[in-house]
Amino acid sequence: MEKLAKILVVVLILLVAAVPLLGQQIIAQPETIELRARMPENGGWSQEFIYGLVNVPIKLRMTSDDVVHSFALAQSSLPSVEIFPGKFSETELVFDQPGEYTFYCTRWCGANHWRMRGTIVIEGPASSDQPTSVPPLFLQLGLDLDAPHFARVIPSNRPESARASERTNALPDGLTDGENIWSKSPEALWKDLKADEDLDDQSVWDMVAWGLNQQGSSGWMGQGRELYTQNCLACHSESGRGDGVMVRDLPPMNHDKMGSEATRPPDFSDPAVLLGASPALLEGKIIRGGMGTGMPYWGNIFTSEQIRSLVLYLYSFQMELEERP
C-alpha cells in the first residue's frame, strides 16, 4: 500500500516535470531563431546580432516579455511584424547580398524605444556588384548640422504650392534644379528668386513651396506622414511643436547649452525654424541624429527616398504642399 502511494506520487511529479521537456522536444524547430523583445530598460532584443548566409532563409520566432513591440527590417519594404506579450509571431527573411542589415522596433515602447535596434550579419558571396553609395548632400556641402539656422524673412501668409502652379508658365528655371533646391533653405531660395523676379513677397513664397513640392516622388506625402507618425511624433508631437509625450518634461532647446542636457526638439510650427533649414540640412539631421537633443540616428533605418519624403513632409508644417499623382 505505502509503496503504491510512493509510486503514485513519484509518477505524478515525473509526469508534470516531463510536460515541459517533452513539449519542448515536440514543439522545437531546430532551424528557428527565438527572438524575445523587451523594453530597452529590460534588455531590449534578446539577440543584438543574428547571423545568416546569403540566400538561406532565416526563420524568426518572436515574442514580447512586456509590452507591444514590432519587428521591422531597416531600408526595406517588408511590412513590420507585430509582437505581443506572451504571443508568438513568426517571419522568414532571405537576403541575396552579404552585409549587415539593421532590424528595429517600430512600436514606441517607452522613451528609449529607438534603442531597440539589432544587426543581421549575412555572409557569403556577393551575387552582383553593389551600387556604389553616394555620400549624402550634407556631407558634400560640409554643412554644420548643429549651427543655429533661424530664418529672418518670414512670409505673412502660409505659402501654397497650388497658387504658384496656377502660373506654371511664369515659373523660373531655378525652381526645377534639384540640387539648387536641396542645398538652399527656403529663405535663401526666396531671396534668390526675389532678386530675379518682379513679384510680390507672397507670390515668391508660393513659388518656393511649389519648387519644394516638385522634389517629391509620387506618393511622397503619404509616405512622409506615415514615417513621421510612426517614428517622429512621439517626440516632435502631432502638431510639430516638439512637445511630444516622450519629451514634454524636458527643457526647451537652447543652442548655447547644446549637448549639456537632453532637450525638447525645435518647434516646427515656428516659421523661423524650418524656413531657415535647407532640405540637405534636415536630411543630415535625420541621418545623423544628435543635435544635443538626444534624437536618434535614422541613416541606417530609412532609405534615402524615405528620408527625402520625410524632409518634404516636415515643410508641410509651414507650407501647403500637395500630394503628387
Binding site: 503514485l8 506520487v9 511529479i13 510536460v19
Partner: peptide, 15 residues
C-alpha cells in the same frame, strides 16, 4: 489521491 494531485499541481506551478 487528491493531495497527490495538488502536489503535482504545486510542482507544475513552480516549474
Amino acid at each position: 489521491i487528491l493531495r497527490a494531485i495538488t502536489l503535482a499541481g504545486f510542482v507544475l506551478v513552480i516549474l
